[in-house]
Design a protein around this nucleic acid. Sequence first.
RNA 1: GUGGAUAUAGCUCAGUCGGUUAGAGCGCUGGAUUGUGGUUCCAGAGGUCGCGGGUUCGAAUCCCGUUAUCCACCCCA
Length: 448
Amino acid sequence: MRVKPISGFPEHLPADCLAEQELIRQIRTQYELYGFSPLETCAVERMDVLLSKGDMGRQIYGLTRAAEDDSSTDMGLHFDLTVPLARYVVQNAGQLVFPFRRYQIQKVWRGERAQKGRFKEFYQCDIDIVGRQSLDPIYEAEVPAIIDSVFSALKLPQHIIHVSDRRIWDDFAATFDIAADRLPALLGILDKTHKVGVEKVREELSQLGFGEQPVTVAMNLIACHDIASASAVLSEAGVPTTSLELLSETIENANRFGCPASAIRPDFSIARGLDYYTGTVYETFIDGYLKWGSVCSGGRYDNLTEIFGGQKFPGVGISIGLSRLFSLLKQEDLIQSEASSPAVVLVTMLDKNNYFDQYLNLARELRGAGIPTEVYFGKKGLGDQISVADKRGIPFALIAGETEFANQQFKLKDLAKSEECTGSLAELISQLQTHAATNRARFVLSGK
RNA sequence: GUGGAUAUAGCUCAGUCGGUUAGAGCGCUGGAUUGUGGUUCCAGAGGUCGCGGGUUCGAAUCCCGUUAUCCACCCCA
């Protein structure tokens, strides 16, 4: 049987796995700094739950076997982490403390044509804050501040969080008597302006029956990138600016949380998810890499649990598209995976026959001191052993033979500096612990 | 899901008009160097030319199908 990759299901070599896991660790650390609890939900959901968000049917991977197992209920893999959260919250509402703050880092699956930075299986790193009956709008400002913290901590090139608010377009639609369900079509076409040009957009919109005045106002609005000019456009057209003021407050509050004004900006062209978001919406881009699309999106949704009945659970959340982000960093050469092994030291074996147990003891001591350690068990000479450490990216080699064991003075070689020092095991351990290598980055980020 | 481009060694790629035994660099293996890697020098291994079929005396090269990758849509992280 021939083996080959499956389209859209990426796999990494160890060095990239290590780098990606390190990104996840840093994201998790930031999420926990903001007091979010971890959550993992099952990969499988009932199909009617998955379809509760809207028309995602074409993207869902259905499961044949699961349906056979469980009475005839159709099942599928989750395509995001928000729908499982909504189901989970309704199911466990009695035992959760609200507002419920959780983060969730898991793979999701979407049956779309794979492309660069677009996969069928990928990681999402979600945070959401879910209230019971109500949710203070302050959380709509906290979310972008958290994302700013995460991206700043990752030391990526500058990120820009684009924000808008669905209610601004609701006001717009009410003013011009446009049905709410026609908004996505309107924005979808408007968003293509920079590609197809103003004339083409006007033509398409007029074919769809949008009047000339609303189209002009809408085009003027999406051209705005600050509150003041947007306010002017809306006022002149007679559209209420109350929702715009809410967005303005949200941005100001995000600034108070520590998200600098340079990292967050209004963008009225965001058309994403307008069918289920009910308030603020977010899309995050890496400056200079707009072609890669949004690496982190979300918004406020008041009605996501509507279909399950019972109480309302309004929420606000956002998701980092980790697989896309990592793929961007790699392909744009913004990240270099440094090592294929997490080990900090390789215990070499000069004299396996006489000191085998002693080598194992050295390793045990090192690991006991919290130093990730690999022992060389091959049959090659010292030069090749050091070479193995080098190829794996292990920064140190511990060298011991007859003399060293006799004196209990061992050699520690720093491969990068090609320097060697001698000392007792305790001395070498403390050197390894204080050395930056123990907490060394598993990748190097360039930029910023 | 629709349309298009691409596929040669582990990697990056050459390969003329369809013509004998498909090449290079890097990497890999061995040696110079049996207690010290990276540099250098020498030698070597490694290919169903993505896969399947067709045309032809003869196919990496032309045709069809298929799979993967990339691009544009759709949509989205």
